[in-house]
Design a protein around this nucleic acid. Structure first.
Lengths: 191, 191
DNA sequence: ATCGCATAGTAAAGAAGTTGACTATGCCCG
DNA sequence: CGGGCATAGTCAACTTCTTTACTATGCGAT
């Protein structure tokens, strides 16, 4: 009853298929919600039977058919209702930070590698978000956009995602620097 | 199999009771993991039967007895093992941002109120984190601490939590400003 | 003396999320 | 023409999380 709202938000401005969402959830809504493909397919199905979405089958020549979902009037009503409820507190699950918390009791070399991987993933997501931001802004400056643009909601969530990823990257730099001073490893520098 | 690791990380430097964790998870580990009291009690129980934690009953005169959990050798081994695994990608669930994404299709006044509440909660958490940071630093400067201090792990995760909450607060300011220009409401200013 | 509150913890149903395997079409590569 | 890959989606078992509602002790206020 919660992924549901994220899906409505993701589909309301652009209908799409389960497969599309499974791929693009990561670059559109993943910023504030994550879900596996299975979750998406299951939930979309349920939402259709409950009348929140309507699906149309699109036959494709060179690929399997696909089902495109769009938000119905009932779906819009549900979304409006959701917007009036008090949102649940944000929940986070970050295994990397759990590892870092217990740094002194773990394998520092391995944790360092995880921080690097995490940083790289943040860079990739950041690029995606910045691309989407550029698409939303078009030729306008940010100031012009804020005064007159539509898609204000997506702009604001993207903005949050962008600073979040920038801070992830900066934090990883800090952590790696500190670690290299405090736990000088076996010369893993660029030879 | 995941909350488990967060609990090991939370308990390894300081044993505590389920009730303590239920209250303080929010100011110690909540930064990168959230869990309800029920989850904690259940998981602690399971971890004890599996030998990762040991519990001792502390009898109290003026209150119900409590069970203090501490990490066993097996628990330490599990934590070390965990530190060597690739951490799962961070997952986030932020209903407020879902509401903001679909801003144009929702009840803006209600969403504005939610942003304000969210900002207030961030301020509270930020204060808690800053207090904990001060406790860790003691009389040292941040630089001195980074060179010589212990509790580097907690420092790093706290640091991440602090910037995260600061960015939440700044984002809320941005969002509220934009909304007040674009959706000028019924004069909800301080009269 | 009873009501509400803080402490401390338990139980269990139901909702939600994860994991792994599986179907099926057509493309390109060798 | 067989294997791997991208597209598009399904199924089922399993684990985890959420929600609601309990038990129990002692304090302080009405």
């Amino acid at each position: 009853m919660a992924l549901r709202n994220a899906l409505l938000a993701a589909l309301i401005d652009r209908e799409s298929s389960g497969y599309d969402l499974a791929k693009k959830f990561n670059s559109s809504v993943a910023n504030f919600w994550t879900a596996t493909p299975q979750q998406l397919y299951r939930e979309l199905e349920k939402m259709e039977t409950e009348g929140l979405l309507s699906a149309r089958l699109v036959k494709q020549d060179k690929r399997p058919d696909k089902r495109i979902f769009s938000v119905t009037a009932a779906g819009r009503a549900a979304l409006l209702g959701f917007s009036r409820r008090t949102p649940k507190p944000t929940t986070v699950r970050d295994e990397l930070l759990v590892q870092v918390e217990a740094l002194a009791h773990g394998d520092v070399a391995s944790i360092r590698a995880s921080i690097e991987a995490h940083q790289k993933a943040s860079r990739t997501r950041l690029e995606g978000y910045e691309q989407r931001l550029a698409d939303i802004l078009g030729s306008r400056t940010e100031k012009e956009f804020l005064a007159t643009g539509s898609r204000l909601g997506p702009y604001l969530t993207l903005n949050r995602g962008i600073t979040f990823e920038r801070e992830n990257i900066a934090w990883a730099d800090l952590a790696l620097t500190v670690l290299s001073h405090r736990y000088p490893g076996p010369e893993s520098g660029t030879s």
